[in-house]
């Protein structure tokens, strides 16, 4: 079991707002996250999931409010110190030049080790994400799902040598995976959080998948955090209908089953130019 100290708060947001182009991308968000937690970010398209993750990854500097990471305001951290403590996986990571998959993973290794394909972390992480057989294939030639798992290995390589609390920010890291891999990857991330030194925050669209792995859900709507809590508490039919416009039936709090309907009844008439 994690000790009381390692359970302590790793990340906190106090009244955080982000504006761009005259509208709020994020509005008055207050929340906190601790090591040992696997938090899944939910919300319709454009709700602000990516914006929130990018803000936590320190890609924006013009936000209002205070973000604290490991007891220190986020903007006070040096780039290198931060890179040793938190890793980020964006939605898309195109690689412009002919790198092998193992070389991409090795680029994630910290500092002087960067690019060292013979480091044991590279083989181990590729094995964990079941891409070890693709190690010396060109990254550009891999399927979308394989590329995504290579990126997961790359992101974790960054924290391989870090002792102490670590933060993992993942933006739709399972979007290209087949169902088996989706559940496998999410379970792996949850297991990582359970180890007690990781805090995982992952954006996702698949409600049952999220419920299967998360210890906590953050539900975003129009840039506001409208629910924060245990999956069973957050995923309530009335709330899902309001936020997503779907009728969902929640069969079991622990093993959530979502039947989705109500989103295909009022389709626009497809008026096609005459052939």
């Amino acid at each position: 079991m994690p000790t009381a100290e390692s359970r302590s708060e790793l990340l906190s947001l106090d009244n955080v707002s982000l504006r761009a182009g005259g509208r709020y991308l994020l509005e008055n968000i207050s929340a906190s996250a601790s090591v040992g937690e696997m938090i899944v970010l939910l919300g319709p398209n454009g709700a602000g999931k990516s914006s929130l993750l990018r803000l936590l990854a320190r890609e924006f500097s013009d936000y209002k409010g205070l973000v604290t990471f490991s007891g220190k305001p986020l903007f006070r951290w040096s780039g290198q110190a931060l890179a040793g403590r938190r890793a980020v996986m964006p939605q898309h990571t195109p690689v412009a030049f002919p790198f092998a998959a193992a070389e991409v993973v090795a680029l994630g290794l910290p500092g002087r080790l960067s690019g060292d394909t013979s480091h044991p972390a590279v083989a181990e992480l590729m094995r964990i994400f079941q891409v070890d057989h693709l190690a010396w294939c060109f990254y550009g030639g891999l399927s979308g799902g394989e590329q995504q798992r290579v990126q997961l290995a790359r992101v974790l390589a960054q924290l391989w040598l870090t002792a102490g609390p670590k933060l993992l920010l993942l933006d739709e890291c399972t979007s290209a995976l087949d169902p088996a891999q989706q559940y496998r990857v999410m379970a792996l991330l949850a297991a990582l959080a359970r180890r007690g030194d990781f805090c995982v925050i992952a954006a996702c669209h698949d409600l049952p998948l999220a419920a299967s792995a998360a210890t906590r859900l953050w539900l975003l709507e129009h840039g506001r955090l409208v629910a924060d809590g245990h999956p069973a508490a957050v995923l309530q039919p009335a709330r899902l209908e309001r936020v997503y416009g779907i009728r969902a039936e929640v069969e079991n709090a622990e093993r959530l089953r979502v039947y989705v309907e109500g989103c295909c009844e009022q389709l626009p008439e497809l008026v096609w130019p005459a052939a």
């Binding site: 990018r54 990854a57 320190r58 890609e59 780039g79 290198q80 110190a81 931060l82 890179a83 040793g84 890793a87 980020v88 964006p90 990571t93 195109p94 690689v95 412009a96 030049f97 790198f99 991409v104 680029l107 994630g108 910290p110 960067s114 690019g115 960054q158």
Partner: peptide, 20 residues
């Protein structure tokens, strides 16, 4: 050399990896 390698993954990722 190393930051240019990281830049091949995009400017944002190079930043996440700690390069200025």
């Amino acid at each position: 050399a190393r930051p240019l390698n990281a830049l091949l993954l995009g400017e944002a990722v190079a930043g996440h990896l700690g390069f200025s």
